[in-house]
Design a protein around this nucleic acid. Structure first.
Lengths: 135, 135
DNA sequence: CGTCAGACTTACGTTAACGTCAAGCACTCT
DNA sequence: AGAGTGCTTGACGTTAACGTAAGTCTGACG
């Protein structure tokens, strides 16, 4: 029943991150592994936090933002202002992401148009090599 | 009829970029302003290229990618292989952007869910301060 | 003629999130 | 005991796209 503590290498394999990354996150105070002498031992709590960190990164949050958000899952329910701050943070981020998506959509549309134009421009040169589907 | 040549400051105002940015792009061989002694004078061609550079940035291209793409608009039509390269580059970038868009969608959905969950978690604490639309 | 705004060159600084050594300690196997 | 493997702590390197500061120069104005 030693499965509640994991070595750094086990963590690397489990989460597909490097040891450097885990130490880096520790330096940034995102996780707090125990020590066996000098070696790190990661608890269930560390794993939960790491999961959230990686999810946060997928959201596009900075590590500093994530450090704040982690407290949202962490606080015991008595820290209302903390909740409100992180809630606001998440909402702001959501707005940013939606804007980003809009920009991305425009860019995609514009780029598609460019590709169509470009395709016309040099169609004569490349008919033999550009994929003519089933012909 | 001096309106075909612009000073660096006029360029900054016209395109909303800093002088440093224009010099930087020149260093990267993206634009090639003339000189009046030591001062830069930007031609119509420079303006056209800058417009494309800024558009490329909106697409998320790196400046190095953009330098390649610029040749797509620039070449005289005889450089077929160049066309094909930049065409492929643009298509790759389009795929990347569509993937990015998909990731972003997922992240937005997930974050929205988190916000809903979070909202429930501390609804009791914050009913008075969270926006209750139309009381 | 003095000076003052702008432009110029050169070069180091910045930010985020790690990567990549370097050098040293702790076990373990043989 | 020697060797090897894994973990540790520094600490400097990396990338992109500029920002910023220092020092010089030049032309126009009063």
């Amino acid at each position: 029943m030693t499965d509640t503590l994991m070595t750094i290498r086990e963590m690397c394999d489990a989460f597909d991150v490097t040891a450097r990354t885990l130490r880096f996150y520790e330096g940034k105070e995102l996780i707090f592994p125990q020590r066996d002498g000098t070696r790190r031992l990661y608890t269930k709590r560390d794993r939960a936090r790491l999961k959230l960190i990686l999810r946060g990164k997928r959201f596009g949050f900075s590590l500093e933002d994530i450090r704040q958000l982690l407290d949202m899952y962490d606080t015991d329910g008595s820290e209302k202002s903390q909740y409100l701050r992180t809630y606001a943070l998440a909402q702001d981020r959501l707005v940013q992401m939606e804007n980003q998506r809009r920009d991305l959509d425009e860019a995609i549309a514009e780029l598609r148009q460019q590709l169509r134009d470009g395709a016309e421009m040099f169609a004569a040169y490349s008919q033999a090599r550009l994929g003519k589907s089933a012909a």
